[in-house]
Design a protein around this nucleic acid. Structure first.
Length: 882
RNA sequence: GGAGGAUUAGCUCAGCGGGAGAGCGCUUGCCUUACAAGCAAGAUGUCACAAGUUCAAUCCUUGUAUCCUCCACCA
């Protein structure tokens, strides 16, 4: 066999792009023709921007899951796609237009939408390129967009079906309204921010001129919409005035005083002006009392014809200033106090949200929420980590109807038409061209579009062809695992479950994996405005996709936020480099070798040891990944490959490779190849590029690693006893190395070492067998295993382990007093441990209550401490003789 | 106001009812022909504080403190 030269330095840029292309050309990510289906749908990124570190984390974890399953023989499908992100995308385009001095109305609906599609295409290109660079093994043949033809059909089907079931209705309602975006927002699209403001105490005179009362308000400009003043019925102060009439200052309208329990006794004056059209609480209160709601706002957020003329056309902030001036001038303003309170802002553009009375479409949620709750209670779905189940339940229990209409142009237009002649409303799966009632052709479609989440809540089945009865649905639905950050549990996850229960009769997935957020090293959320974000592409450019993926996975402890900076990714980078070089070493030794069959009867202790360790690593990875404990899996492969394989096994093999016979060399190389190719398979889900690149260079392998089988625990290669004994051997090596290091003995100075096992110690023969290897590890010129205690070690420096003692002949270098001091410290430490153990063992309660293993363990510890103390004492005596 | 999370080595974080861990950083010695992005040997901790449960608490319970999220919201 010839040597294969791997590039001397690991540089991911040399191969990552080429490898991804090979995967695509090899159809590596298409689901296998057979096997049990395993599906993940990717949370579709918005087409407004580029992917950030949170996406990198998310998609890395999904990719690890799907690659792991694919290699274990599942029929794995990962569905990618993007979301049209109604408000966000429309805002991007409107901002562009604003730079040109245009508004969307200047273009008209059709041209505006066309332009938005162009933006979508551009961002889409960037996003899919980024996903490819991260190594995401999604099936691009299954890629979907929330506004493509199939998904639009699904949206329409779901709307009309819900309408037919009486679950969609149109109603006048007080909604959150963003004047800038010009659209209603769902409750959870409003972000509250504590904002300094003022509380104004304002006098409202009695209609009969007999004085006045004082109300407190933060928004005096809404007083023109007041229809009452409310007090708490239990408020002794105001018992007698309920029912009396007041006159509104500045406009002269009469309003009554009513009693309602929602009014707080403590806050302000205990009197609240009721403005149903501009405050959610007042809206509820107004409904309870059958009061009119007077809308004061135009759709653009300015005041309308329901206010006195001088205030019309002003925005609320300007109007407030003027109203306050006028109140003061009229002697109505009692006092102004500073008052910080939470003000709602649009989650997309940050504008202050106004409660706004308008016609909107709603979905009744109660029934669906109950089904979604039941799905959790029945164990149909589960969250990882589990604590999110509470969050999910509490939200569903308190759910309110969902406002789904948005006054935007970019999105799924509501499938409702109005007959211009007879006023008939038509809700239809297909575009109607005639009124069913009056046969008029003058039909106009509802101008509004649907909330973005109204398409994404169908994502797990709409992407598989619903409402059609497709083979994909049969093969891949329901999906298994959903990976998402916690910030969209309400927006998206809960709604997907409700939609799926409603339309498919079952939950859309089984496991919901909630990841943490990626933060900077100060713990701040990465955001554009702070400029503290790290671009995944920068990380990939600098360290490679493998490095980024491995680092994120290593840090992703169940749902905890991860804090990273650019340097954090050195962890993964160094690991990839280590792998690269380990393989290079093997390939450099392939020259002239031939692969032979690997038979355990020819194994050395180290061979057995490394196979046992490999088995353990495989078992750990499988169980950790199945439980979504990503960091545990990453740590397992890291320590197996680096500490076990590179630090010990390869070092051990070097002996045979330089000194062994041809047969021994062939055998060693064959095992190395075997371990390496299994390691590549084991590690591939985590670091797919470098393992695939190496796979292509390893002898005796075929095809792509991405579609190779995952290694399995092999009981025939499990050697528990040898594994333990090699552990003791390593301990002996460490003792000598420590002695050498502590005493400042140069590495090239060969030492004489004697190992003296305790009588009957199980590792004695191993020490004898591996004398040469141990001597090399220790830098020993002469290593003797003293089985009968006959060797004179009185001139040697002693150290002890459980079961054996190691004597190093370093007389000339020993600093006797300080070594004795160390040994005394060792004795003191062990003495203390022994006391603790003795205390336990003499405690009758402990003996009576503790598990028998715990007692056995404690007894073993006692023996251990005693032995170590005995040895140390002996060693002090010995040192004193030196 | 409600809920959740965090508090472990200088930093970022694992872990766990019975002897405190990793990576990075730091110290010391090594260019040992795979890797100096490396090898070897080290140092560093009242596991936030207090009480309780337990034979046994860093781990479970309760409370306290500090920090961070989310939800709700009083004009």
């Amino acid at each position: 066999m010839k040597a294969v030269e791997l590039a001397k330095t690991y540089d991911p840029k040399d191969f990552e792009a080429r490898i991804y292309q090979a995967w695509e050309e090899g159809k590596a990510f298409s689901p296998a023709a057979e096997g049990k289906g395993f599906t993940i749908v990717m949370p579709p990124p918005n087409v407004t921007g580029i992917l950030h570190m949170g996406h990198a984390l998310n998609n890395t974890l999904q990719d690890i899951i799907i690659r792991h399953r694919r290699m274990r023989g599942w029929r794995a499908l990962w569905v990618p796609g993007t979301d049209h992100a109604g408000i966000a995308t429309q805002n991007v385009v409107e901002r562009q237009l604003a730079k040109e001095g245009l508004r969307r109305q200047d273009l008209g609906r059709e041209a505006f939408i066309k332009r938005t599609w162009e933006v979508k295409e551009r961002h889409h290109e960037i996003i899919v390129r980024q996903l490819r660079r991260m190594g995401c093994s999604c099936d691009w043949d299954h890629e979907r967009f929330t506004m493509d033809e199939g998904l639009s059909k699904a949206v329409r089907e779901s709307f009309v079906t819900l309408y037919e079931r009486g679950l969609v209705y149109k109603g006048q309602y007080l909604v959150n309204y963003c004047p800038k975006c010009g659209t209603a927002l769902a409750d959870d699209e409003v972000e509250y921010e504590n904002t300094p403001g003022k509380l104004y105490d304002v006098r409202y005179p009695y209609a009969d001129g007999s004085g006045y009362i004082t109300v407190a308000t933060t928004r005096p400009e809404t007083m023109f919409g007041d229809v009452a003043v409310a007090v708490n019925p239990a408020d002794e102060r105001y018992k007698d005035i309920v029912g009396r009439k007041l006159v509104l200052p500045l406009c002269g309208r009469e309003i009554p005083i009513i009693a309602d329990a929602f009014v707080s006794l403590e806050f302000g004056t205990g009197m609240v002006k009721i403005t149903p059209a501009h405050d959610p609480n007042d809206w509820e209160c107004g409904r309870r009392h059958g009061l009119e709601a007077i809308n004061l706002l135009n759709p653009d957020g300015t005041l309308n014809e329901n206010v006195p003329e001088k205030y019309r056309g002003l925005d609320p902030v300007a109007a407030r200033k003027l109203v306050v001036e006028d109140l003061e001038a009229g002697g109505y303003l009692v006092k102004v106090t500073d008052h910080a309170h939470d003000v709602g802002h649009c989650y997309r553009c940050g504008t202050i949200v106004e409660p706004y009375l308008s016609d909107q479409w709603f979905v009744s949620m109660r029934g669906m929420a109950d089904k979604a709750l039941k799905a959790l209670q029945d164990g149909e779905i589960s969250f990882h980590p589990k604590r999110w189940e509470n969050t999910y339940m509490r939200w569903l229990e308190g759910i309110r109807d969902w406002c789904i209409s948005r006054q935007l142009w970019w999105g799924h237009r509501i499938p409702v038409w109005y007959c211009q002649d007879c006023g008939e409303m038509i809700v239809s799966r297909t575009d109607p061209d005639e009124c069913p009632k009056c046969h008029s052709h003058r039909l106009e479609q509802d101008p509004d579009v649907l909330d973005t989440w109204f398409s994404s809540w169908l994502w797990p089945f709409s992407t598989l062809g619903w409402p059609g009865k497709t083979q994909d649905l049969a093969d891949f639905f329901p999906t298994q695992t959903l990976v998402s950050a916690y910030d969209i549990i309400f927006f998206w996850i809960s709604r997907m479950i409700m939609a799926s229960e409603e339309f498919m009769g079952k939950a859309p997935f089984k496991d919901i994996v909630i990841t943490g957020l990626v933060r900077d090293k100060q713990g701040r959320k990465m955001s554009k405005s702070l400029g503290n974000g790290i671009d995944p592409i920068d990380v990939i450019d600098q360290y490679g996709a493998d490095a980024m993926r491995f680092t994120l996975c290593y840090l992703a402890a169940q749902g905890q936020d991860v804090q990273v900076d650019m340097d954090s990714f050195k962890l993964g980078s160094r690991f990839a480099n280590k792998i690269w070089n380990a393989v290079r070493y093997l390939l450099l030794n392939m020259e002239g070798r031939k692969l032979v069959s690997i038979t355990p009867d020819k194994f050395s202790a180290f061979d057995k040891w490394i196979y046992s360790r490999l088995n353990k690593a495989i078992a750990t990875v499988d169980s950790a990944l199945d439980a979504y404990r990503f960091n545990e899996a990453a740590q397992a492969v890291h320590s197996f490959f680096w500490n076990d394989f590179c630090d010990w096994y390869v070092e051990a093999v070097k002996q045979r490779l330089t000194q062994g016979s041809d047969d021994e060399k062939d055998f060693s190389v064959s095992i190395m190849v075997d371990i390496l190719q299994k390691s590549m398979r084991l590690m591939h889900p985590f670091i797919p590029f470098v393992t695939e690149e190496i796979w292509g260079q390893l002898p005796g392998v075929e095809g792509l690693l991405a579609t190779a089988s995952y290694p399995e625990v092999d009981p025939a290669f499990d050697f528990k006893e040898d594994e333990e004994l090699v552990g003791a051997l390593q301990e002996a090596v460490r003792l000598v190395r420590a002695t050498r290091s502590q005493m400042g003995i140069a590495n090239d100075k060969k030492l004489r070492v004697v190992i003296r096992p305790a009588a009957g110690y199980a590792g004695s023969s191993l020490f004898e067998e591996e004398k040469g290897l141990m001597a090399s590890f220790m830098g020993a010129g002469e290593l003797t295993v003293d089985l009968d205690g006959s060797i004179d070690t009185s001139q040697a420096f002693p150290s002890s382990a459980l079961g054996f003692e190691v004597f190093t002949f370093v007389k000339e270098a020993v600093d006797v007093p300080s070594e004795i001091k160390k040994l005394e410290a060792t004795i003191a430490k062990n003495q203390k441990s022994l006391e603790g153990t003795m205390k336990k063992l003499s405690n009758e309660q402990f003996l009576a209550n503790a598990k028998s293993e715990a007692i056995e363990k404690e007894k073993a510890k006692k023996a251990e401490f005693e032995e170590l103390i005995r040895q140390a004492k002996e060693h002090i005596a010995q040192l004193e003789k030196l």
